[in-house]
Structures are given as C-alpha cells and as structure tokens.
Design a protein around this nucleic acid. Sequence first.
DNA 1: GATGAATGAGGCTTCATTCAT
DNA 2: CATGAATGAAGCCTCATTCAT
Lengths: 205, 205, 205, 205
Amino acid sequence: MQQERRPLGRPRQDHKGKPTKNIILDVATRLFLEQGYQVVSMDDVAKKCGVTKATVYYYYKTKADLFTDAMVQMMIRIRKRIFDILSADKPLKERLLEFAKAHLQATVGIDIKGFMKEAKNSLSSEQLQQMKETEDKMYEVLEQALINAMEKGEIPKSHPQLGAHSFVALLTVGNYKDADQHPIFPSLDEMAKQIVDFYWNGLGN
Amino acid sequence: MQQERRPLGRPRQDHKGKPTKNIILDVATRLFLEQGYQVVSMDDVAKKCGVTKATVYYYYKTKADLFTDAMVQMMIRIRKRIFDILSADKPLKERLLEFAKAHLQATVGIDIKGFMKEAKNSLSSEQLQQMKETEDKMYEVLEQALINAMEKGEIPKSHPQLGAHSFVALLTVGNYKDADQHPIFPSLDEMAKQIVDFYWNGLGN
Amino acid sequence: MQQERRPLGRPRQDHKGKPTKNIILDVATRLFLEQGYQVVSMDDVAKKCGVTKATVYYYYKTKADLFTDAMVQMMIRIRKRIFDILSADKPLKERLLEFAKAHLQATVGIDIKGFMKEAKNSLSSEQLQQMKETEDKMYEVLEQALINAMEKGEIPKSHPQLGAHSFVALLTVGNYKDADQHPIFPSLDEMAKQIVDFYWNGLGN
Amino acid sequence: MQQERRPLGRPRQDHKGKPTKNIILDVATRLFLEQGYQVVSMDDVAKKCGVTKATVYYYYKTKADLFTDAMVQMMIRIRKRIFDILSADKPLKERLLEFAKAHLQATVGIDIKGFMKEAKNSLSSEQLQQMKETEDKMYEVLEQALINAMEKGEIPKSHPQLGAHSFVALLTVGNYKDADQHPIFPSLDEMAKQIVDFYWNGLGN
DNA sequence: GATGAATGAGGCTTCATTCAT
DNA sequence: CATGAATGAAGCCTCATTCAT
C-alpha cells in the first residue's frame, strides 16, 4: 500500500528485492510510455528485466494484458499523486501550480488519447473500457477539487469537467519544443506559472 | 532454369482522374491519422489504393518517406485552411470560433506530438526535422493572428507562442469522450463556443 | 480486437539425436557451398532442416551470421583434416598425394575467395576479418609442413607461403570439366598424381 | 515531394559516342565482375548507364541474357589479348611472364568457375553451354602455345591441357591477400616472376 | 529507341504466443 | 517459477519482368 518515497533523481535499474511481477510491470510501464505500445516488444520488456519472454508470459497472458495493467496501475498512481497535491490546505491556485510543476517534471507526457489510438486495434473492448474508466477517475479528482473551490466561492461556478480537461490539456503545452529544440519558456517553473496564470484567467477569475 | 511466363507489366491505363501517387498519399494520410504510424502497414495502404505494395514502393522508397510526406503535406494543407479562416475580416473571437468549429469537425485530431513519439525511432533525423519545421509553421499562422490582434489592441499583449499552443491544446479537449462515450458537451458548436470562451478569458480579456 | 487461438508452441521433443542448431549449421554449410551465399535463402535452409525460418533465426540472428559460422566451422574442420593428413610419418610427396586425393574427393571445391567476393557487401567487416583469419590458419598448416620438409632437406628451401597457396590453387584444376563435361583426366587418382608431380617439379625437386 | 529535377546538370559518366547497347554491356560486365551475378540488379546496371531499366530490357531480354553476353564477350576479348601476348616472337618463358603481368594487373580476377556456380540456377543450359565453350576456347589459346613450344623442343612434352589450366590456376595466387591485407609478394612484378619460375619448374624444365 | 508505371514473387527479419521441461 | 525451443503470421523492402505510350 505504502508507495515508496522516490528520492529525487533518476529511477535506477536496481531491481533488488522486488517481486518479479512488479519488476516486469515497472519496466513495461516505462518502456510503453517512452516508445508506445507497438514499438515495445515482449522481448524488449523481458530483456530489460533480465528474464526471458516466457517469464513475462507467465505473469501476463498477453501483451495487451501487460499494457492494460501497466497503464491502469500508472494512472492509479498518478491519481493518488494528484489527489495528494490537491488535498493540501492551500489556495487552489497554489495547488494547481504544484500540480503543474509535478506534471511537467515527469519525464513522460501522459498522453492517454495517443496510446489508446495506437493500441485500439490490439486491445479487447473490455481492456479499452477499463483504461477509459481509470482515466476518467483521474480527471474526477481534479474535477472534485474544482467543484469544492466553486462551492467555497474560490472560483466562479462553471463546468468542472471542462475545467479539468482544459487544465490537463494546457499542461501538454509545456512539453512542446520547436524545430531547434527550444521550449516555449526556458525554465519549467516559469512554464508552469504561465500556464496556471493563463488557466486561472480562463476560469474567469 | 526455365523462367515461367507471368502476366505482369503495366495494366491498361485506368484513368480515374487522380494520379496514383496522389491516391497513395491521400489514403496513407488517412490511415496514418486514424491508426498511427506503426499499425498501418504498407500493404494496408496498397490494398486500400487498389494497387500492390510494389507500386507504393515505386513512389515512396520507404514507409518513413511515405509517412513524412503524408504528414508534411497534411500540415501544409491545414496551415492553409487556418490561414484562410484567420484572414477573414472579423473580430478575432469570431475567427477563433470558426477555427475551433472547423478543427472539431475534422474527424482526425492532429496530434503531431503523439505521432512523433511513435515514429521517432523509425524516422531519420532529417525527416523528424522536416516534420517539426512544418509543424512550427502551422503554429506560426495562429501566432501571427494573435500578434496582429495585440497590435490592434483587440487583446492584451501577452506571449503569442504560448497563446497559439494553448489554443490548439484546448481544442483537443473537444475530442474527449468518457467511458460511456459521452463527450463533454453534446454538440460540437456548444463545445467550440465553450472552449473559445474559456480561451478568451485566458487571454486576459 | 480478438486474437485467434493458434496451435503454436514447442512441439513434443523430437529427439533424432543431433541438436537442431547443428542440423541447421550442417545443412547451411552444404547449401552455401553448393550454391553460394546469395542464392541460398533462409527459407531454403529452414525447409531442408524441417523447421521454420523463425527457428533458424532463433539460432542465428542474421543470414550473414549463419554464413560466417558455417564457413568458419567448415574451415576449422578442413584444417584439422589437413593437419591429420600432413602429420603422417611418410615422405612429403606421399602426404601431398593423399591431401590431393582427399581434396578432390570432397564434392565441394573450397573457393573462399569466390565466396568472399560474393558476400563482401553483405558481411560486416568483423565477419570478413574472422573468415580471413580462419582461412589463413588453414594455409598455415600446409606452410608449416613445407617449412618442416625444407628444414629436413626433403625439398629445396623456397617461399613456403607461395608453396602452400600454389598447391591449393593447383588442386582447383582437378574440378575443371570442359564443355562436354569431361575432366582433364578420367580418374581422380590419376588427376591427383599428375597435379602432385607437377607441383613437386615446381618446388624445384 | 517533388523529384523532377532531371533536365540539366547531371554529373553522369561520360559514355561519349558509344551506342547504348555497348554502354550497357560494358557497364554490366564491370558490375558483374566486381560484385557477382546475384548482387547486381538490372536497375543497378541501368542507373550506372544513365538509362532506365526498360531500356536495358529493350536490348537484353533477360538478366541471364545480359550476363551471358557480358561474360562471353569478355572472354573473347581476353582470348584475343592472350593470343596477342603469346604470339610474340620471344622465348615461351618471357611470353608467359608477360601474360602473368597482364593478368595480375587486371583489377578483376576472372573466376569463371565461381561465376558459373553462382549463376547456375538462373541460366538456361544453352547459356551455360555457351559460356563453357567460350571458356574452353580461352584455354585453348594457351594450350596451343604450349603444344607449339613442345614441338619446338622448348619445353618437355607433357599434357598441354593440364599445363594450361595449371598456369591460370597459379595466377590466382597473385590475388591472395592475408587477413592484414598483405599480398604474398609486395610487387606485382615480383609476384609474376615467382609464379612463372614455379610454373616453369613444374613443366619439367 | 526509350521510358514510366505496374506487378507477383520472394527474401530478410521480427514478433506474439505456446508448451514441454 | 522460469525457461528454452519452436512456430505462423506478418512487415519491410527488392527485383526481374512486362507493357502501353
């Protein structure tokens, strides 16, 4: 239950102690996020884990299963982190700023839509459904925070679902780099601040 | 060893009007947008075109070439459409609304970032660069419209690049559907209006 | 999308004795020698082995790998046989005669030069180097026998490397057949004798 | 992408006045000798000639035809050169030395045996026969020179066919390079001299 | 003469998946 | 638990060849 606290810096290759199934899931998550569903092969996962393909299949019946589990678990973890950040006893704007910073620091941009399009032909409808539902729950956390803020009069009443999705959509702007690899703002903090300011205006404040 | 005679060669000119190369490019564009780079096979493209794989390779030396050309040409077309819409002699907000409607009507969400991540290991750096540059030019059209509006005092001065990317990012919200396949707003027009309103506030108006 | 169930997987152990990898290597060696690198396809090899292409790739990552291993192992075997023949306690000329007979009986003419030219664009430089070195070691065995004979005064002192290569070159004459399929001498033994006599003179005896 | 750009400024090989068919044959000969039958494609030949594949097919009905013609014409040219060299009014040994030098200077080692093995599955039996016959005629020139020398008492009487083939076989030693790319003798002239000396002894002189 | 367009066949390689051990 | 061995399917790409123009 207790999520291990990640020290700052890179996650290392060091799979000591962890049960094999967890190693596989972690490695798979990272690979899928970095390269996409199709490009990552079961053998890639196995090799990075230091086991054989057959072992991966021992834990996950199909690649689609592994992918679904990886994405779902990841979204659950993200939801928890979002929840923690948004539960702090601070003004909403400050909480959103922290949310933005955390999201932009994550090396991977979580583009569920993109992943779903790529995998849509390979996943069963149950699996797609399961991912969709987990994704929805992620957004609900943010929605709820907006609803609470509206009820407390911290922000004007408006469509909370639109608000939640807009915020996450705006965050993707932070990952943009132009043809010369320059991001829109040089520092992550500046980027986060600008996005939140823009968003805050958009909410009607 | 005897060679068998086979009925090969150029079939009688089958003039349906469009040159084969264009057919291929159009079909490929559609398939790539719908399913992503990896999932679409050269054979898929060929079959949908009613030609053989070899014919596709006659016009495009590699799958990466076909993909790059498809994406670049598409972005050029989109840029033209954006330019036309934004060149109208109307208040900016109305032009943006039209932009939004047009974009949401297009069956495809143009998620260049997602495509690039998926294809990044398959494309040459020249190809990636070419796509990036074309993408930048797309955004520049919107940026320029924002700059003009700022100079005319139609909107407050702010970071036009951020503004351009934010707008496009917000549009993606329009494609969202929840686990029950419900979009955030039932009608496209309503969706577009809400997004533009939100955006308009974000610009500081 | 539903995956179909297929009856794949490891078939019941079909122990004919030789491990599959050895079968593949042996068959590949024979095919490459008979037909050359380019003409032999991985599928040819697989079919002659009674396995599928994928099985061949399970043991050899590329065709070039399979070829290199096949040629190297073969040259090592040949070197051993040459060594055995030349190690006998007999006059050099008799040993050379036996060498010649053995070589002419072998169905394959070992034309490393030819193989290398054909494969040179397909092999990595490491692979070419490995083959070259193994080839050199083959010749060294014959060189050493010549050096020993020179030291014992059995033949006049001369350039042993030239001597070794000349002998092998002369042996290729034995495989010549004219347009009517007639060899130069009707019997192998006669052919061998004539070549060795010619060679023996050439050495200056 | 546009790929026109044909009309002006093509830095192509300058095949001046020669008729197209000759250009094709010359280019094909060179390519086949350098790389072998299988590796050279009709398109390779066409491109090096500055024409299209269809043009090559206009002159040669099949690749096997082109190959056969190329090889046969080449062997005829070689036969002429051998004939010229061997017709000089000099002692046989000197003529052989010149033969050897000329052969070793030619960039390509003419290994008909190797070519035939590689092409054997692709050529018709008529084509194989034709090449064989032309090859035989090449050797006959040398045979005849040996016969004449025997009749003049310049060399002992022996089997002229064996003598001819042995000489050509020995010449291949001149092209050998070890794993470090060192030939047996550093200079071509020295190599030729050593080979001819060895051969001369072999003839029984 | 020469070419542009097209094709069927086939070659190399990868991959998800299976199953006996 | 874990793996080694195997496979069918499919994907990318090349090539000899053909034929209308």
